[in-house]
Nucleic acid binder design. Structure first.
Length: 481
RNA sequence: GUCCCCAUCGUCUAGCGGUUAGGACGUCGGCCUUUCAAGCCGAUAACACGGGUUCGAUCCCCGUUGGGGACACCA
């Protein structure tokens, strides 16, 4: 039986990036589908930039998406001893050599080579110098066989690679004794028995050098699959500065994990015409053969659509638990779930693409006295509807039962009593009085969900507002400045 | 600059020699309507260009153009 082992190896130098999240998703889906082992390894070799917080953010992000790993998290930093050992072995075998060229020299020679029409690769000056451990400050370079091609069959890009003569003898170990990324990944992947490496296409051109390291190690070369990058609207690699890339930011904006997962899955991968995928369906259908080869732009409009789709699909309890923090943020207090709140969220599902938006739309219920938008008040709270508003407050106060149907009858009653006012004429003023805004769910439902006491009180306040304003306008003007 | 890669509607994509080039998001229009949505119906819109190969190219090959990635004692 062949083992199938994959890994996701993020460097914790920030928050979990959506590109990284997608790479993790692809690895995870593939491994779940094929029944292998998926492991997580934190590439924290760069101690300067790696922090414990961002490592935690990476794990949190994966957990939130529901991407679970079978082994790890391992930390590359914990394997430093092993990396040192491997470099020594390569040195002992002559597969690597010490190099005492200084950075300055290297830079000068490289520039000169390029000026002379060369490639700017390391010129191999120390390659045959047979420098020993006591040669002073030195790096260790891989002795690449420049006669031999470095090729592989990529599961996404197909036949890939280049001639050995195209690349220089790369550095494996710094002069301070620490290993470089290329050496560390290869050693770790070999030691951890990784059989399939699925990673971002930004590693595509790093692969030849890594292939050379596998050879030097005499290790079996895994299967590679490079996934095209997610690019920004400008078509370039996503930048933390300019683009929305942080998974936690999407989460904070009120995107649901199932929407993120679905969106990420369809960025670069497809399954016929299907657009909606549950996690289980992604696992069921995912395959590298249908991963495209060109970069995919992050389409936020589609994410919004997907998010609303999943907001609409969530059962009440699950919707509430996702929305709770957002609702509490608007309310400024703890919010508990009850029938009225479920009803409100139900009304808001069709009107929200993000949970922040949903919570904002719930404000008129969440706070005791929502502010009334001045423009809305000017336009809709006018003397012409004063009578109807008061009649409606009265009718609502007198209702035996509080339901959409009885509220509707109260509206009809109020309209009739106010001189056969048309229902449509009353709806907007009531909406403004009750919610403070001109947009809300159906007016009967809106009134219902806000509750009898508050609805009646707000209508009366609105009536009062109309009276006061009329009085001011009628009275002597105090000249404005 | 060198090497590598990519190229179907605005966007994500289906397509794997013969299709009216399909779907989705978006956009626009209509219906519905007490607002906003949602829903329904409809419309808009693409094979970058030039050579081959072939009876026939979106599809295969070459080139051009355009875009991207990698070229560190970063990961």
């Amino acid at each position: 039986m062949t083992t199938f082992r994959t890994r996701f190896a993020p460097s914790p130098t920030g928050f979990l990036h959506i590109g990284g999240a997608r790479t993790a998703l692809f690895n995870w889906a593939l491994t779940r589908k094929l029944g292998g082992t998926f492991l997580l390894r934190i590439e924290d070799t760069d101690l300067e930039r790696s922090t414990r917080e961002s490592e935690a953010a990476v794990l949190e992000g994966l957990e939130w998406l529901g991407i679970g790993w079978d082994e790890g998290p391992y930390r590359q930093s914990e394997r430093a001893e092993r990396h040192r050992e491997v470099v020594e072995q390569l040195l002992a075998r002559g597969a690597a050599y010490r190099c005492i060229c200084s950075r300055e020299e290297l830079e000068t020679r490289r520039a000169a080579d390029i000026a002379a029409g060369g490639k700017g690769n390391y010129d191999g000056r120390c390659r045959d110098a047979a420098l020993g451990p006591d040669c002073g400050p030195h790096t260790v370079r891989l002795r690449i066989d420049h006669e031999r091609a470095l090729r592989w069959d990529d599961l996404v890009f197909g036949p890939s690679g280049q001639e050995g003569s195209e690349i220089g003898d790369g550095i494996l170990r710094r002069s301070d004794g620490t290993p470089l990324y290329h050496l560390a990944v290869v050693v770790d992947d070999v030691d951890m028995g990784i059989t399939h490496i699925v990673r971002g296409a930004d590693h595509h051109s790093n692969t030849p050098f890594q292939l050379a390291i596998y050879r030097a190690l005499g290790a079996q070369i895994p299967t590679f699959a490079h996934v095209p990058l997610i690019v920004s609207a400008s078509g370039r690699k996503l930048s933390k500065r300019r683009d929305p890339v942080s998974l936690q930011q999407f989460r904070a904006d009120g995107y649901l994990p199932e929407a993120m997962l679905n969106w990420l899955a369809r960025l670069g991968w497809s399954h016929g015409d299907q657009e909606i995928f549950s996690a289980a369906e992604i696992v069921e259908h995912f395959d590298l053969a249908h991963v495209g080869r060109s970069g995919a732009q992050a389409d936020l409009a589609k994410l919004a659509w997907l998010n609303q789709h999943y907001i609409k699909a969530r059962p009440p309890e699950a919707l509430f638990s996702a929305a709770k923090p957002f609702l509490e943020s608007v309310a400024g207090r703890a919010v508990v779930r009850d029938a009225a709140l479920d009803r409100l969220l139900d009304l808001l599902r069709e009107r929200s693409t993000q949970l922040v938006e949903m919570a904002e739309k719930a404000r008129f219920v969440l706070v005791e006295e929502p502010e009334i938008e001045p423009d809305a008040a000017n336009k809709h709270l006018r003397p012409a509807v004063l009578d109807a508003l008061e009649k409606l407050a009265e009718a609502l106060a007198g209702l035996d039962e509080w339901s959409t149907a009885t509220i509707e009858s109260a509206f009809e009653q109020a309209c009739k009593a106010a001189g056969d006012l048309k229902l449509g004429k009353l709806a907007q003023p009531v909406r403004v009085a009750v919610t403070g805004t001109t947009a809300s769910p159906g007016i009967y439902e809106t009134v219902e969900v806000v509750g009898r006491e508050r609805a009646v009180a707000r209508l009366r306040e609105a009536a009062q507002f109309i009276r006061e304003r009329a009085a001011n306008e009628a009275g002597p003007k105090t000249g404005g400045a």
